Amino acid sequence: MASSSYYREMYRKKRDEVDDYEDDLKDLNKILESLSFDLPAEVIDVNFELDGLKADLLKGVRHNSLFTNRANAFENKKEKSIGQDRDMSTTQNAIEDEVARVTNLRSQAISSRDYYYDKYQEKKSEERAELLKNIFGG
């Protein structure tokens, strides 16, 4: 049967594993937060700048239908929001799936950590009782 030191070591490994998963979750949530809040603001800023550039170019080059048509067609090339951009939406979904997977792994590691801690406490008590029995003869 395993000794208390074995269970203590397993507890420490699982505790470290839980900490690693928590760090991973923090990083993934920062990325999701950036996708949800920072990126849309940047998209709006870029599109605003493009609108201004287009307006300035149209003012500078007048009476040229080819240029005007191309400048107006440029409207379709503006940055899209995350929900409209297929690649960004796919990326966001993949990150959300990874958050769910890591959360599940973290939960399993917490259960294992708690199990090994309980076994450590139990084994430590048994070892103490055995030691007292050997010392005082029982």
Rank of each mutant, 00 (worst) to 15 (best):
N72E: 05
L32C: 03
V102G: 01
L58V: 10
T68V: 04
K78H: 01
D24V: 10
A41I: 09
E22Y: 06
L25Y: 00
T103F: 01
L131Q: 11
D27M: 14
E49G: 12
N47S: 01
S111W: 13
T90K: 08
V99M: 02
S125L: 15
K123Q: 03
E122V: 04
L28K: 00
K123A: 03
F37V: 14
K123H: 03
Y6M: 08
L39W: 01
D19W: 06
T91D: 06
N134L: 12
N64M: 04
I95W: 04
G83H: 08
I44F: 12
G52I: 07
L132F: 15
A73C: 02
E127I: 01
K124T: 05
L28M: 03
D24T: 11
Y21D: 04
L32W: 01
V18W: 00
Y116D: 05
S107I: 07
Y7H: 04
A73R: 05
I95S: 03
S5R: 10
I135L: 06
V61A: 02
T91H: 03
D45V: 09
N72L: 09
D27Y: 15
R101K: 14
V102A: 01
S3Y: 10
A55N: 02
Q121I: 04
E130H: 10
R106D: 03
Y115N: 00
K123Y: 03
N93T: 12
L39S: 08
V43Y: 03
D24G: 10
K26W: 13
K30I: 08
I44K: 14
K123E: 05
D56N: 13
R12Q: 08
V18A: 00
K78R: 05
P40D: 01
G52H: 08
K54R: 15
N64Q: 04
Y117P: 00
H63W: 10
I44H: 13
Y117L: 07
L105A: 06
K119P: 02
K123R: 05
N29P: 01
S111F: 13
L50D: 04
G137S: 12
N134A: 12
Y116K: 00
N47V: 02
L53G: 09
I135S: 07
D38H: 15
I95L: 07
N64H: 06
K13P: 10
D114K: 04
D20I: 14
L28A: 00
T68C: 01
L66G: 15
G83M: 14
E122I: 11
S36W: 12
E49W: 14
I31C: 06
E130N: 10
S34V: 11
E17I: 05
K119I: 06
D118E: 09
G137D: 07
Q121K: 03
V18C: 02
T91R: 02
R12Y: 07
N76Y: 11
L39C: 08
F67D: 02
Q108K: 11
E98P: 07
N134Y: 14
A2H: 13
R62P: 04
I31A: 08
K133V: 06
F48K: 15
E96H: 05
K26T: 14
L32V: 02
N69V: 04
V18F: 00
M1V: 12
N76K: 13
D56T: 10
A41D: 11
L131S: 15
L131H: 15
E42K: 11
K80W: 01
G137A: 07
